[in-house]
Design a protein around this nucleic acid. Structure first.
Lengths: 175, 175
DNA sequence: ACCGTCATGTAATCGGTTACATGATTCT
DNA sequence: AGAATCATGTAACCGATTACATGACGGT
């Protein structure tokens, strides 16, 4: 049995399997889009590679369909369940980063006014999407995703505040 | 001359060289820590590899010291200057993500109350650092970094708000 | 029957992370 | 002068991104 190190991607897969019970990579792809994918995107090719990796290390089981598409179905093992639980329980890493290309450009001298316009549009859109999403009843039963969404909304509001401020700042005025 | 694709890391290097005029990888490392590194970290090994990559593609020049340490000194070429400017000018990518492990854990069912305690401590600290940093006079002359820092402060405040709210939420009560 | 689009998957490449390694300085 | 720490750099591995490829299916 191979040893692997668990990355955030790994935990996303484990977490989704824990929610879904059993899933094919394609299922995972569907779930990611529109949920976790909003604040932690994962390209679909990873959703094929990662479960295979996890299977090799015993965190999930892999069953292949006999006929037809011969899809692979994955499910958590006890080991996987434990790894996920440890991760959620353990105190979180001290490090995090904003890692926003917009802010990076700002840092390196992009014109604040025009950048702000651009960014403001993007983030307003995103905020609207989130607010729409928060209406969905499905979320009522899922406290984790709902809270994560609330966090996302908070940050988008902050973005909108920030970029609005910049957009309104007079171009040449000091301060 | 090799072709390379420019990643965010590339632009950080180009941007820093544009600010510093000329620098060795070690210089870059020093500058990154305490400035951009706060919201876009780059391991120091990348600060050796990336300038070399950029040199191979003509974005920067590479001069090696004759004696002693034989350090490599890098500086922007005209091509590099243009690439940087295009990047700052161009409309920004539509996509960005929060990518915060804390929120990820929240999504996948970590206990909100205890996670919040932990996260609250982390983000309060970070916020304090930022606020201290914003006192430095050096920033007065650097509009980009100053604005980026303001953005960082805004987001840390938002984090503090969010996690405080969760921390105070009664454990068993609904809502 | 054909075409377009969605479903499903694999391959190759490369940037990034982690770990290791050695030359300078400084302090005692 | 020895030890500890900082400065400076390289190597290897691996996850992630990008691109490509084929099968199924619904519509006309």
């Amino acid at each position: 049995m191979k040893e692997v190190t668990l990355t955030p991607t790994s935990y996303v897969v484990l977490g989704l399997l824990s929610l879904a019970g059993e899933a094919t990579p394609y299922d995972l792809k569907q779930i990611v889009a529109g949920s976790v994918g909003n604040f932690w995107a994962i390209p679909h090719s990873q959703l094929y590679a990662e479960p295979a990796r996890l299977a090799a290390a015993g965190y999930v089981t892999e069953k292949r369909e006999a006929g037809g598409r011969r899809r692979k179905h994955y499910a958590l093992t006890e080991r996987g369940r434990q790894a996920l639980e440890q991760w959620t329980t353990a105190p979180s890493e001290r490090s995090w980063e904003l890692r926003d290309p917009g802010i990076l450009k700002l840092f390196f001298g992009a014109d604040p006014a025009s950048l702000a316009q651009d960014q403001l549009a993007t983030h307003s859109e995103r905020l609207a999407e989130y607010e729409r999403a928060s209406e969905a009843e499905l979320l009522e039963t899922l406290p984790g995703p709902r809270l994560a969404l609330e966090a996302g909304i908070g940050h988008e509001r902050e973005y909108v505040r920030f970029w609005s401020k910049l957009a309104n700042r007079k171009k040449t005025a000091g301060r």
